[in-house]
Design a protein around this nucleic acid. Structure first.
Lengths: 193, 193, 193, 193
DNA sequence: CATGAATGAGCCTTCATTCAT
DNA sequence: AATGAATGAAGGCTCATTCAT
């Protein structure tokens, strides 16, 4: 029983630290975020921080991997609900909401500025692979169903779709809002006409 | 006479420092780049560095503004050579070459990770405004000439074009090459069919 | 328990740093005192120094405020022991001993040379107000008891008394000893004859 | 002829640098005054500064020695005009005006904060010896003329007089004005009653 | 588990002085 | 004489990490 309580307490605290770290990284960038600031925001001591994450980089990787899990869940949900082009467009809408988050841009920048540490690169790769695979899979289905234009290979269309998503994300970081436009753009680019 | 020599010498040295700073920022990120490393790479002393750039941030802004001038030159050249859709596609090819540069990605990340200092933001704005204006101008011309699809407003097409460019840049940063594809994608997205 | 020990240890260490800082400031002046020198003299690391005093200026203010407390204590002791003119003369003797200290002059100079930072000015004000009030209070009593000359207002006599004290301090800084003369001078200036 | 012009030009420029240095030292203290700031205020280049004063310390000594000359002149003037106690009181009035100068305090502090360099100490000594000798001489005369109290030795009265002057100077530095009071205090302390 | 005092390497920046022109 | 670019040593301060309690 105690074990159960401990594990719950442990998980909650870990979550709290991750959340604090995310906000700090997003606001100040990785290098300018001090572990002390994370501790303060999470309401813990520096020693405690160390219990959960041996190094600052571990905390960043933790945030990143948590993001991967969230993404995985969203993709699964969407896959279950709608196949083909609709799935991709639905995810574009989710994406658009994510990149509109006040912290998204800062966090993306914080990570981008890093000389790619292997563990960070791995987490980043995991996330983008997940998405690339999702798009590839559903566009292949869409192709079979004749939903896509015919003059360009599916693989190329997948790449272009990701470009639009990343580009929209970049715009969002610059503070240019673009509500609802992304899925329209993707549709315009991919659809058979 | 001495004046002429001095100014030339001054400009050359400034250029050399800027170049060294660019490579360092690109490789290690802004915060992890030490002024000592820039000095070493430029072959100058720390005192000389601060003679040219009072602070590390000033050096970054210097790099950025030099980039703006380069971009301005390229855009003028292209504008003079080809109007309308062709101009945009031509710049897309230049862009594709730029983002393929081994340092481009690192430098973009280095800048992105910064809590936007006003001077940095201003330089960044100057560059993107230049490009946005260029694209807007030439797409408007293209519209008049019937080169563009009719179902989407020109302003929207401009935004989508920038999305594709930024997205391709992001891909390049991730190390995914995309030789020649960008202009094809833009053409596919914009062209009247 | 641990708490008690910690607080004691903390206070002792703080005291040791303050003491080292005092000697350094007195010997070399504020600007020429390096935090490294204070650390060396106190036997601590640079990090520890900043754990106790975030900036070098904070250490100076700490020294100053500790001095204010010492002065407050002396004045209270003297006030309790002897009222009127005697109290002032007794404090003059304490003052004479203080300014004879080998470090007094240097420290006074170190502080005087500073472009008055608000926090330094405040500490300095606190000390001189304490003394001015003490002198004013006891001379007023002396006046009532007919111990003072009658041709000059009490407030003026207070000022003059402080002038003699400050002047004697200045002499001491210049290395001119003046054992026991200050209280005689004050007495000669103030007494009813 | 050219020689005369050169010498005049040299002297004027030296004067200008000294004046700029004085204001800078007074405003910011010796250590915090940069040679660059002195150059800027004097309207010269760093190289020129070096022609006149090989080191920053030399500039300070220059300022100090110029002050000694000024003081010497004042004392001679007063000595010629009035002997005995009157001379001392007259100089007290001059002193009071000097210490009221907006830069006096700062400059005094700037010098006081220095770890006594021999050349600085020498200049300071020269000035205070001048004054001590002046006071000693005129009080001896006053003694003979029966202008002084009888219960204290002349040497002691000289010391006390300097204490009052230094103390008043200290008050002035602290920003407490004391117009006209100093000579009254000295008179009250010294006079036969 | 939790705490927070302690460490010390490393960074940006300043500035007196030199010297080629 | 005058200039101002160049130097480089030195200093205050930060912060990730450790460890005794």
């Amino acid at each position: 029983m105690a074990r159960t309580v401990d594990q719950k307490r442990y998980a909650e605290r870990r979550e709290a630290i991750l959340s604090a770290a995310y906000r700090q990284f997003a606001t100040n960038g990785y290098d300018r975020t001090t572990t002390a600031a994370i501790c303060r925001e999470a309401g813990i001591s520096s020693g405690t921080f160390f219990h959960y994450f041996p190094t600052k980089l571990d905390a960043l990787v933790g945030v990143l991997l948590a993001g991967v899990e969230t993404t995985r869940g969203e993709l699964q949900r969407i896959t279950a609900a709608s196949p083909g082009l609709a799935a991709v467009l639905n995810y574009a809408r989710v994406w658009e909401k994510d990149i509109g988050d006040e912290h998204f841009g800062g966090f993306a920048g914080a990570v981008g500025g890093l000389p790619l540490e292997p563990s960070v690169a791995a987490a980043l790769d995991a996330e983008s692979s997940l998405i690339a695979q999702f798009i590839g899979h559903h566009l292949a289905t869409a192709k079979k169903q004749g939903e896509l234009r015919d003059d360009v290979a599916v693989e190329t269309l997948s790449t272009w779709t990701r470009w639009l998503m990343d580009g929209a994300a970049h715009s969002a970081v610059q503070g240019e809002a673009s509500s609802g436009e992304l899925s329209v753009a993707i549709s315009a680019l991919l659809s058979a006409r």
